[in-house]
């Protein structure tokens, strides 16, 4: 445990500058919201910057993990010489990114509460659904962020492997692989086999005061995503343990 917590602290220190910049940006967005509240004259428009800030958090974990991995790449021999298995080294980075994301979102939530209090009448009719929708969005953002993060990690590991094999073209190959895999993934998601595999265990979410149509998700979809996440994570750990050179 001591080994892992030391890794976690190291990863926090490697990325804390970006984290603190993010927190400052949250404050600036809250100030912008406050300003819009005055000029927009009691309009829901004032909440647009906050909504955008929350939405941007979907790329939070992949961004932090990428910055962390890039930093490790500057002295890769150090990271690779660490005798702990790659999955532990990688998990520490994901956990650090997740912690930062949750803190940042919590801060945005706290700032939103402060801003909403004097303008509560604006959203009072939608409040119950807004609150419920928040609880729907929050875990889904974390889920999507982790999935994106595993893609970033596997592409980084492929890049590290290829750069000693093909040199400067490795970025192009990695970019090509990203586009191709995303294309294939999107194509597969429109196919019948995908629907057959994922469209079971339907869960319906209703937010009648905000959305006219309910949102439907499937337990099968979550399991499909989970398998992709685990698969990509195992592939990354295998590449780091067996193919990446320092």
């Amino acid at each position: 445990m001591r080994q892992w917590s030391a890794l976690f602290i190291k990863d926090f220190k490697l990325t804390r500058t970006v984290f603190f910049i993010g927190l400052v940006m949250n404050v600036l967005i809250a100030m912008l919201t406050l300003y819009m509240g005055r000029v927009a004259d009691d309009s829901l428009l004032m909440f647009v910057p906050l909504a955008i800030a929350v939405a941007i958090h979907v790329v939070y974990v992949p961004l932090i993990v990428f910055i962390d991995l890039k930093s490790e790449g500057n002295h890769l021999h150090l990271w690779l010489n660490n005798p702990q298995p790659a999955y532990k080294l990688l998990l520490s980075k994901i956990a650090n990114g997740l912690m930062m994301m949750v803190i940042s979102l919590t801060m945005l939530y706290a700032l939103s509460r402060l801003l909403i209090e004097p303008n509560f009448s604006l959203i009072e009719p939608y409040w119950t659904d807004t609150w419920r929708m928040g609880w729907f969005i929050f875990p889904h953002m974390i889920w999507i962020s982790i999935e994106l993060c595993t893609w970033v990690m596997v592409l980084w590991a492929i890049y590290q492997y290829l750069k000693l094999k093909i040199g400067r073209w490795s970025w192009a190959v990695v970019a090509g692989a990203a586009v191709l895999s995303e294309g294939l993934n999107a194509l597969f998601k429109t196919s019948d086999p995908y629907r057959y595999v994922t469209e079971w265990g339907g869960i319906t979410y209703q937010f009648p005061t905000i959305l006219s149509e309910p949102i439907q998700t499937f337990a099968g979809g979550y399991i499909y995503d989970f398998i992709i996440i685990i698969g990509l994570f195992i592939l990354t750990a295998w590449l780091v343990d067996n193919k990446v050179e320092g």
Binding site: L14, H75, L78, L80, N81
Partner: peptide, 21 residues
Amino acid sequence: NRKTGKVVSYSSELSSFYPIF
């Protein structure tokens, strides 16, 4: 392989370490 790090103490010619420490 990577696990060799358990029995080999290695220092690179780059003399680099995590600058945060």
